[in-house]
Amino acid sequence: MKRGMTKREKKEARAGWLFISPWVIGFICLTGGPLLFSLYASFTNYNMTSRMDFIGVANYIRMFKKDPVFWKSLGNTLYYVLLAVPASCVCAIFLATLLNRKVKGTPVFRMLFYLPTVLSGVAVYQLWIQLLAPQSGLVNSVLRLFGIEGPSWLADPAWTKPSLVMMRVWALGTSMLLYLSSMNSVSKDLYEAADIDGATFLQKFRKITLPQISPIIFFDIITNMTGAFQVFQEALVMSKNGKGDPAGSLLFYNLHIYDEAFTRYNMGYASAMAWFLLVIVMTITLINLAASKYWVHTEEGET
């Protein structure tokens, strides 16, 4: 495109665009339109069926100034993200490390840890409602064995979000799988060299494993965060009447969007909220992306 491109660079550019063309075509033909449409809708009073008048930034003003639950839902979501993302990343790396030692029964363990991600929908949420029952629930029964009186998880506003975090950590199979794949891709030579130098297990983990899997850690953090910001199905099913109770403690950002869009048909407002969330998540991602130069190990030296 630029004048300064050499013939080779042009050839490279053409190849690059050719390789990414499936996505570009998909974006132009299928997914991009609706996405841009929702951006436009965020500046209108769009209700999906009868109106779509341009109202400027009125939706955004309502969001910041007039919506009594907007900040609460954002706060709840941030709290959840801050708790869930580190917890699931650390646990997934830990499990993958254990699995990578290939002790007896590893294939079975691997299967077991992946299983929860396979489950989805109402059945899982129901299981957790039962498990978290304060008296007869299994979680508190186990805690009682250790002399701990567990909280009444889903009924106590202070414990509802940790309950959902627990569910998320329980289903960390996908992350675990990614770490496992990437750990296995670390060259054996590196470890052998370290062994000769007499490095301990922890040293090897810190000096070799972590840097080598850092691209995947980066990926896991970003996608986990994106996913956690969009938490909503759990809250819809697990709060007693789907409105984020008790005391609005499960009123997450996306639950609020969903309610606005589908019970009150304020899709314009819902779109505005969605795009504001995109701005937040994108900002965090770009900061991460910039910071990743300092800790993510790549062959190219760039991301």
């Binding site: 609706p34 929702s38 969009q230 869009a261 899709m267 969605a274 795009w275 995109l278």
Partner: peptide, 26 residues
């Protein structure tokens, strides 16, 4: 390496960040 790569990649990341049900109707 090709021009526009980083911008496009950012857009790809962006598509993950919009909840499915907002674009569902269009």
């Amino acid at each position: 390496k090709f021009p526009g790569r980083n911008i496009l990649f950012t857009i790809i990341l962006g598509t993950m960040m919009i909840p499915e049900f907002v674009t569902m109707i269009p």
